[in-house]
Nucleic acid binder design. Sequence first.
DNA 1: GGCGAATGGTTTCATAATGCAACCACACAA
DNA 2: TTGTGTGGTTGCATTATGAAACCATTCGCC
Lengths: 146, 146
Amino acid sequence: MVKRTSFEKAECPIARSLEAIGDWWSLLIIRDAFLGKRRFSEFEKSLGIAKNILTARLRSLVDHGILQSVPASDGAAHMEYVLTPKGHGVFPVLVALRQWTEEFGGRKVSTVLVDRKSDRPVRKLELRAQDKRLLDYRDTLVRPRA
Amino acid sequence: MVKRTSFEKAECPIARSLEAIGDWWSLLIIRDAFLGKRRFSEFEKSLGIAKNILTARLRSLVDHGILQSVPASDGAAHMEYVLTPKGHGVFPVLVALRQWTEEFGGRKVSTVLVDRKSDRPVRKLELRAQDKRLLDYRDTLVRPRA
DNA sequence: GGCGAATGGTTTCATAATGCAACCACACAA
DNA sequence: TTGTGTGGTTGCATTATGAAACCATTCGCC
């Protein structure tokens, strides 16, 4: 096989997620969608992506059920791309990436994710056990499902 | 420019993170490193990746300060690749990806991430406000840093 | 010490993905 | 009717990826 290897059938859930959102542009498109962008030209301008690539990525995201293409809200003829529930589910991934850069990226990051109500920065993502103990990577283990 | 576009100078912290870990293999290598793999051949066998690609990825991860190459622990001549603190910081990203697949991936996932102490599955990642309110994507906003 | 195998790569070459630019069809406005 | 903007598609050059062959050390073993 000379094709790019696919992770569709992978057992590992991380590999499977990469199948859908693991390329250069998909996560940035999703990020923009969270920022309220919905039109082809909005993504194009914001990302500086080539149109053919954008077409391909949008189609792939729609095929994966992450975006949905709906008739334009303003009645125009074109379609708009909005996040599905599955797409909204990517949010923690984006937050994790953002926080990783904030913590280890060196240069200061120019934007902050804030809580709408208080207008103050959010806390770091927390991984907890059933009994709510805060967990670290050292506290966890990957197990075959029973 | 015909080169693949780079996000090094991007403002967005998400784009910057993708610069380092946003390709097909890097996250899987990091995942394997978390699972205790450290040798070239271990990664190779586990991932089914071509050797030249693995060489390139390992080098890139080392350059980005995510892996460190250290003399083999068993005294052999070769190098081993271990996670740096920056590499350990990727953990929440992996967890977020895993949980996304678990929730939206359709087919059941064959492994679970468990808390070592209780041997029970961990909870979903939680994003909280300063006052500990649990937050949703709808509760947040990206702001230019003051 | 000599031999074969394993390790950790590099090199070569074919194919796939990406990026750019040019083009196109349609809607709408002047 | 002649633009002008949107939302693409097509063609072609350049990169990255993947498979396999090759290579230099080191290691076990006799």
